[in-house]
């Protein structure tokens, strides 16, 4: 009775999302391009290899400190392509709009998309508009798809991660998730918490030129770092060890998470990536990331080790605990 409906948790990006994907979508659509379940699929097009991805954006509120639905719709797809090592070429934009939605707001969203696309150096090559009756959708949903060109010799895959590799994080966690929650619920959290929504293609291209030996890159969005690392551990059949002290979280986000009973390891981001690379290349990659405005706080946060696929966290006080995939959505607690 409870099991046969779609739950909000199925869209959380955590374990339930993965189960739904495996049990339904992967089974039905099974093919070699889809199966690795990376952020973008690799396809052959003549002599070239392209990356292809799609994502839908349903954020409430549409505008929040540091971004809006338009900016994340462009950046999210650009980033999904970039973590495959691709140079983003073009993206599509599909709008589902609720009847009565103010045109002025739509203009703001579109203008934000134009600016984000210009910053990322992609163009919006095709699009679609649907309007549904009032009440049949919540204000505005956007879907974007994107294609990018993968340079010769670049083949990133989580399955290629090896024990001994460094785990590199491009910056602080949780800004987007907490900024949106704060705006949605009028929590009045102080500390100027702003979404990190950003196109990471230039930064990640810089990392790839610093080390052609990068094994894999992942975009950390819903489900947070904890979920992404678990997926990587499962793909490469090794354990991942990270150090709590090395993971940057802003003081404002840290105290907000404590107040609400949330874990920054599962909070959403829209401008962060995690990179796996041989340890000897790690310092060069970190330097390349830090030279970009979106990677100033990049650093090595842990390493891949032999052992059963799991993610272990060494806590600030020297304890060890497991980091599991996000289970359902994170719900704020009773204080």
């Amino acid at each position: 009775m409870q099991e046969d409906t779609v739950k909000l948790g199925h869209g959380s990006g955590g374990r339930l999302s993965r189960e739904l994907t495996a049990a339904l979508f992967l089974k039905a659509f099974s093919n070699p391009a889809l199966e690795p379940l990376e952020d973008a699929a690799r396809l052959k097009a003549g002599k070239e290899t392209i990356a292809f991805t799609t994502d839908s954006y349903v954020v409430d509120p549409l505008f929040f400190p540091g971004g809006d639905i338009g900016r994340i719709a462009v950046c999210g797809t650009v980033n999904d392509l970039s973590v495959q090592g691709a140079r983003p070429l073009a993206i599509s934009a599909g709008f589902i709009i609720e009847e009565g939605f103010p045109l002025a707001l739509l203009r703001r969203v579109v203008s934000s998309m134009r600016l984000a696309a210009r910053e990322a150096g992609v163009f919006i090559a095709t699009g679609d508009t649907k309007v549904v009756e009032k009440g049949k959708a919540d204000k505005l949903f956007i879907n974007t798809s994107g294609v990018g060109l993968i340079p010769k010799g670049v083949k990133l895959s989580s399955a290629g991660i090896r024990p001994g590799d460094a785990v590199i994080l491009s910056g602080r966690l949780g800004d987007h998730g907490v900024a949106v929650m704060n705006a949605r619920n009028g929590l009045g959290l102080s500390g100027n918490i702003r979404s990190d929504a950003a196109p990471l293609n230039a930064m990640l291209a810089g990392a790839l030129s610093a080390s052609p030996r990068i094994r894999a890159m992942r975009d950390i969005t819903r489900g947070g770092l904890g979920t992404v690392l678990n997926e990587a551990a499962a793909s490469c059949r090794s354990a991942i060890e990270i150090e709590e002290e090395l993971i940057p979280v802003s003081p404002a986000v840290d105290s907000a998470c404590r107040l609400l009973g949330l874990d920054p390891l599962y909070a959403a981001n829209e401008g962060k990536a995690v990179i796996f690379a041989p340890y000897r290349d790690a310092a060069g990659i970190v330097a390349a990331l830090r030279s970009d405005r979106y990677g100033r706080e990049a650093g090595i946060i842990g390493r891949v080790v032999r052992g059963k696929p799991q993610v272990r966290l060494r806590t600030a006080i020297g304890g060890t605990r497991l980091v599991l995939m996000l289970e359902g959505e994170q719900l704020p607690r009773i204080c």
Binding site: G261, D263, R314, T315, A316, I317, G318, G319, T320, R321
Partner: peptide, 12 residues
């Protein structure tokens, strides 16, 4: 309870 588990203290 959460803080003890999250800091790995129980095993220490």
């Amino acid at each position: 309870t959460m803080a003890i588990a999250a800091s790995g203290l129980r095993r220490m």
